[in-house]
Design a protein around this nucleic acid. Sequence first.
DNA 1: CCAGAAGTGTACTTGATAGTACACTGTGCG
DNA 2: CGCACAGTGTACTATCAAGTACACTTCTGG
Lengths: 234, 234
Amino acid sequence: MNRISKRQRAGAAGRGARRRAAFLAAAREAFLAKGYAAATLDDVVRRSGGSRATLYKQFGDKAGLFAAIIAELCAEMTAPLREAGERPQARAPRAALLAFATAFMRVMMAPASLALYRLVVAEAGRFPELGRAVYRAGPKVAAARLAAYLRAGAAAGAFTAGDADLRARHFLEMVKGDLHFRALIGLGPQPSRREVDRCVRAAVDSLLNGISARPPSRASARRRRRAAAARGAS
Amino acid sequence: MNRISKRQRAGAAGRGARRRAAFLAAAREAFLAKGYAAATLDDVVRRSGGSRATLYKQFGDKAGLFAAIIAELCAEMTAPLREAGERPQARAPRAALLAFATAFMRVMMAPASLALYRLVVAEAGRFPELGRAVYRAGPKVAAARLAAYLRAGAAAGAFTAGDADLRARHFLEMVKGDLHFRALIGLGPQPSRREVDRCVRAAVDSLLNGISARPPSRASARRRRRAAAARGAS
DNA sequence: CCAGAAGTGTACTTGATAGTACACTGTGCG
DNA sequence: CGCACAGTGTACTATCAAGTACACTTCTGG
C-alpha cells in the first residue's frame, strides 16, 4: 500500500531521491504509529515499495532512518508555529492571545503531533538528541514568539511587569490544558472544536484577569512589582 | 489475581506473597527504566532472585505482570495527591494554592512519577486501560480536589464565578509548566527547588491576578459573569 | 518428621527482527 | 545501443526474548 509509482514525470527528482522520499514516508507512518521498538523495517520496506538493501544503503541502520524522520518532522513542525498569530501587535490583547492559542492548539492536537510527542517522550532516554531537537523546534519556538509579544505589550503598558518567558510558557501549558494529555493517552474521542475553544477562552481569561474577586489592592500591586523586579534581577 | 495466601503467618507474609512482592519490585524497576518492550522478563527474574516458572504462575504473562505493576503504582500515586494541601479553607487563597501546587509538583517531578508518565504516554495505545487507570489515579484526583476548593472559595466570595473544573486543570498545567516536560525528556538537570518554587509562585500570581494592567472594568466583569453563566448552562 | 504444595534452575521451542550477501533487473546517459 | 550503476528480491545468519517442560529442592502445616 501507499506504493509510489515508479515512473515519475521528467521534472521530478532523481531515482535515488524518489526512493528516499518513499522510505521516509513509510517510515514516518510506521514509527509514529508504533513507536521505535515496535516498528519493523520489514514493514517499512513493504510499505515503501522499495527493498531492504536500498534502505540500508541510504540510511545505514534503523537508528539512522529514525533520525532522518525526526529531522523532517521537526522542520515541518516549526513552520506553523513561527507563523502562529501573525502581527499580534495590531490586535487587542484578548484577540491576539486567542488567535495565537488557537493556532497553537491546532498544531498540538494534530494526530501527527500527538504521535511525535508520544515518540519523543518514550524515546528521549535512548536518543538524547531527539528531545533537544524537538524541544527546540516546538515548544521553544512557540514560547519565544509569545514571550516577545508579552514583552512588547508590557512595554506598551497593556500588561503588568513580570517574567514574560515564564508567563508565555505558563500560558501555553494552560492552553494545552488536559485536552492534550487526554488525547495523548487516547482517553475518549478527540475533543470537538467547541471544547477546544472553550478551553482556550478560559485560559485567555485567566491569563488576562485572574480569578480574584477584588481587583488587586494598591499594596498587593506594589508587592507584585517588587517580586517581579527581584525575579528580573536574579 | 490478587490471591490471598492460604497460610498467613501472624507477622510475616506467606511465601507466595513474599515472592510476589519481590517480582513486583524488580519488574517495577525494569519497566520504569526501560519501557514495556525493552524490559525483559529474564532481567526481572534475575533481579527478583526468583524463577521464571514462578513468575509465569503468578502473573500469567508479561502483560499480566505489567498490569500488576501499574495497579500498584496507581494506588501509591493517589495517596499523596489526596492529602495534598490539607484543610485549604483554613488559609488565605494564596497560601493554600501555593501549598497545593508545591505538593503537586513534588509528586509530579519525582523520578518514579516521571518514569510512569513516560510509560503511560508510550504504551497507552497498546494498553487502553492503562491510560484510564493512571488518569483516574493522578490528574483527575488532583484536579477534583482543587476544583472543590475553588468552588468553595467562589461561594465564599474570594473568587470570581467561573468553571472551577476548567480552572483547576488550567492551574495544574500551569504549575507543571514546562519544567515537567523538560524533565520528562531529560533536558538539562533536574530543576532546583528554587526554580520550581519560582514557577509555582508565578503560576499562583497569574491565576489570582492575571496580567492585565488595569483591573477589569465593571463592564468587562459583567461580560465575564455572563460568559461564565453561559458556560455553566451548556 | 512427613507429605505435598510452592518455588527453583536449566534447557528447550518458537517466533520475530536487525542486518548481510548475492544474483538479477530496470534505468538513464553517452 | 550498451554499459554502469542503482535498485530489487530472496534467502540467509545471528540474536534475543517470550513462553514451556520437567526434574529437583525447599518450605509449611499438621
